[in-house]
């Protein structure tokens, strides 16, 4: 598929990954919520960077920052973290 479109495979793996995290942290919904929060902050900052392109040159939240936040959240859940790394653009 073209780089501008999300392929069904990417969509499916995102769905099953979100589902996996949700199920893994059924007893700790705060961890799942914090994960969603990190993703939303990342997305929001990416949008702000796009809108202000040519401005002060801020790059928003980097993939490294996202990864380290998720790493501290998923401590001891190495499989989840490894899988998350597969979604990151420069992992």
């Amino acid at each position: 598929p073209p780089a501008s479109e999300t392929s069904p495979v990417e969509f499916d793996s995102a769905i099953s990954y979100v589902n996996k995290i949700k199920n893994r942290f059924l007893d700790h919904p705060e961890i799942y919520r914090a994960f969603l929060e990190i993703l939303h902050t990342y997305q929001k900052e990416q949008l702000e960077v796009k809108e202000s392109r040519g401005g002060r040159g801020s790059s928003g939240m980097t993939e490294d920052e996202v990864f380290s936040k998720v790493a501290s959240l998923f401590k001891g859940q190495e499989d989840l973290l490894a899988e998350f790394g597969q979604f990151l653009p420069d992992a």
């Binding site: 780089a3 392929s7 979100v18 589902n19 969603l36 939303h40 979604f87 653009p89 420069d90």
Partner: peptide, 27 residues
């Protein structure tokens, strides 16, 4: 079966966009 809230769906959206960017950066 998937019981997704709007928040879950937007997480799926962010993750699949990340995967797409990754593919774009690898190709």
């Amino acid at each position: 079966s998937y019981d997704f809230t709007p928040l879950d769906s937007s997480a799926v959206y962010v993750l699949s966009s990340m995967a797409r960017l990754r593919r774009a950066s690898l190709s």
